[in-house]
Design a binder for these strands. Structure first.
Lengths: 211, 211
DNA sequence: GCCATTTCTTATCTTTTGTTAACGCTTTAA
DNA sequence: TTAAAGCGTTAACAAAAGATAAGAAATGGC
């Protein structure tokens, strides 16, 4: 179908600079393992119960992670263009995935497989760089997860929402509100009420004048 | 003060086998950087606002991670003997730590510093092994964090408590209940109520007989 | 052993959240 | 275009959790 353009590869390489700088020979070996994958809105990238074999870079589009509990979907996380995406626990352990990952929009990805990563980790020419790449990505994810855990332990749902509003205002634009509610660990109804409370507290001027 | 005994080193090496196997020459280089640290109950291993310079292995003793919110301590995590411990985000970024780590019991540790780790990562003889070590530890932590985040999104406090009861019953023996409550993201009073509810639900026989 | 502190429980009251259902509004698909 | 599905808000009620305080139980230090 769609091909892996030099532009897309260059973009990917640039984004990976945040973790590691590949030399040209290293990049040649790595990029030889990359392939493009296109996925339509609502299609599934990783399915609950199946092993995740890929780590992907999102060229365009967006994704949500969700679980099913009592027959209801609970959204846990979102990824957008310019980010790496995978069901990491499944990928790392090569065990069935708990979350399902679904495209929220039509999306294009650059991917590599677990198998090819393992091959590169065995290849003396790039092993060190790939180990470091993996380490730094993992370390990055640790910091993300840690902040999220801390937010659940130390903050109320309202505080978590305000934090999200400040740190990722774009996310609230791009993600349906009932998904955001799940992400915050509350129900959609509850988030709607929190928003109402905050709106009332933010602009009570006409009320105070009247009163 | 206390020395790093061969027995302690051997124990450490055995535990690290879960991540990586060091050859004897590799271990010689790594273990040369290790030192022992003893810390008394209630003393602080990592202090909020200060950079964490170490990753430690707990030979004996236990620790709690906590934050201060509105002047009150909120416990977030616990570590016991046989585990690695660090304020990872602070260690990895060499930035001020958010959590404080405090000994819950007198403890003995085997530690290495950020500086010595960086030196080993530069040393061609062990760089690859140390990169892998770091990667696998980080990947392990990712899986731990992910499960915790999922528990906050998909489970009620009661379900989280029951899960903990099943998966880490020992923790409930060794950690004061109000710390556990924090860990679960609720107040100590609320946990006490949950326990009461569960006790009533588990053994209501005499009540039904009476009724 | 005794006193002080900490920890846990319980009670009361308030606040928040969950649940369910209804209602408009928008989006999607036939 | 029309019907269906999805989304956000609101309401009403039930359930749970937070805040505060008081008292019992356990722990720790001297």
């Amino acid at each position: 179908m769609s091909t892996l353009t030099p532009e897309a590869l260059k973009l990917y390489r640039q984004h990976l600079e945040a973790f590691v700088s590949f030399t040209d020979p290293e990049w040649a070996l790595f990029s030889a393992q990359l392939y493009r994958r296109d996925i339509r809105k609502r299609e599934v990238l990783v399915e609950h119960g199946k092993v995740c074999h890929e780590v992907c870079f999102i060229l365009s589009g967006s994704f949500r992670f969700f679980f099913i509990k009592d027959g209801v979907e609970i959204s846990n996380y979102f990824c957008f263009s310019g980010e790496l995406i995978s069901a990491y626990q499944s990928f790392l352990k090569q065990a069935p995935s708990f979350p399902t990952i679904q495209a929220m929009e039509d999306a294009s990805l650059i991917c590599f497989t677990y198998q090819s990563l393992q091959a590169l980790l065995q290849n003396p020419t790039v092993a060190l760089k790939m180990e470091r790449f993996g380490r730094l990505v993992a370390e990055y994810l640790i910091c993300c997860y840690e902040e999220r855990v801390v937010s659940f332990v130390t903050q109320t749902p309202e505080e978590r929402y305000l934090d999200l509003l400040q740190k990722q205002p774009d996310l609230l634009q791009r993600v349906p509100q009932h998904y955001v509610a799940n992400y915050l660990g509350i129900t959609p109804v509850s988030l709607s009420r929190i928003r109402k409370r905050l709106a009332a507290a933010a602009a009570p001027k006409h009320l105070t004048l009247v009163a």
